[in-house]
Computed example of a mutant assay.
Amino acid sequence: MARNRQPILKKCRALGIEPMVLGVNKTSKRGFRPNANRKPTEYAVQLREKQKARFIYNVMEKQFRKLYEEANRKDGVTGLNLVEYLERRLENVVYRMGFAKTRRQARQIVSHGHVLVNGRRVNIASYRVKVGDVISILENSKNLDLIKEAVEAANVPAWMELDKAAFSGKILQNPTKDDLDFDLDESLIVELYSR
């Protein structure tokens, strides 16, 4: 299994995103210094947007390409479908519900088997949740300090609801672009892949 072991702050600086988007409460001492006399090409802008989405959602290139192709086949706007698919990944849902402080931590919680979907244990981070699914924490895992601290500071988006006392949440509707917690221009990603 491929793993991304790049330093978070270094990659954030290269992509021009704030580390707080990833849930990392650190800042780099180095400032972002783009090449002053050089304007990035259209391809470079599109590639950076795709790399930003891949890095934030912790998805490798092959899997990201498959998500794009599936979003392209579905009726509707391809870019919005892609954003919806990325947001509905189980690791992202666990993070957005507040069971973890970062998306990487959420991935670990899922892969270690602490998460139940509709009462069944799911340890696949890329599992795609549906409207009406109930995501909860395993009974024995509710005592973990890591999860307790994250749930206390949870800020849940409008497309899901959270019951902090029961450590469970429900998907109310499919997410839209407005529900993202960072800026993403998905049309650039579509343009890049449709070359």
Results as ranks from 00 to 15, higher is better:
residue 118 N to A: 09
residue 97 M to V: 06
residue 34 P to I: 13
residue 173 Q to V: 14
residue 64 F to R: 01
residue 109 I to L: 05
residue 31 G to W: 09
residue 49 E to P: 02
residue 123 N to Y: 10
residue 100 A to T: 09
residue 52 K to L: 11
residue 195 R to P: 02
residue 60 M to E: 14
residue 36 A to T: 09
residue 122 V to K: 02
residue 85 Y to H: 08
residue 134 V to N: 04
residue 21 V to F: 00
residue 188 L to F: 08
residue 56 I to G: 00
residue 11 K to W: 03
residue 1 M to G: 10
residue 20 M to T: 11
residue 168 S to C: 12
residue 69 E to C: 04
residue 90 L to N: 03
residue 121 R to S: 14
residue 163 D to K: 03
residue 42 E to K: 09
residue 47 L to Q: 08
residue 132 G to C: 14
residue 105 Q to L: 08
residue 63 Q to G: 02
residue 70 E to A: 14
residue 159 W to E: 06
residue 7 P to T: 09
residue 192 L to F: 12
residue 36 A to W: 06
residue 92 N to A: 14
residue 4 N to W: 09
residue 73 R to Y: 11
residue 178 D to N: 13
residue 66 K to E: 14
residue 80 L to Y: 05
residue 178 D to H: 09
residue 25 N to D: 15
residue 170 K to H: 07
residue 116 L to M: 13
residue 59 V to W: 00
residue 146 L to E: 01
residue 87 E to L: 13
residue 191 E to H: 09
residue 178 D to I: 10
residue 50 K to Y: 01
residue 28 S to G: 14
residue 144 L to Q: 00
residue 159 W to S: 04
residue 42 E to H: 08
residue 45 V to M: 08
residue 108 Q to C: 12
residue 44 A to W: 07
residue 116 L to G: 05
residue 101 K to W: 00
residue 96 R to H: 08
residue 163 D to N: 10
residue 140 N to L: 10
residue 72 N to Y: 12
residue 192 L to K: 12
residue 3 R to A: 10
residue 84 E to H: 01
residue 138 L to A: 06
residue 113 G to K: 00
residue 96 R to M: 07
residue 91 E to V: 11
residue 99 F to K: 00
residue 195 R to V: 13
residue 36 A to R: 13
residue 187 S to H: 12
residue 188 L to E: 06
residue 13 R to G: 13
residue 177 K to W: 05
residue 177 K to I: 15
residue 80 L to M: 03
residue 47 L to A: 06
residue 24 V to C: 01
residue 186 E to N: 02
residue 69 E to Q: 13
residue 32 F to G: 10
residue 171 I to A: 00
residue 120 R to P: 11
residue 23 G to M: 03
residue 44 A to M: 12
residue 18 E to K: 14
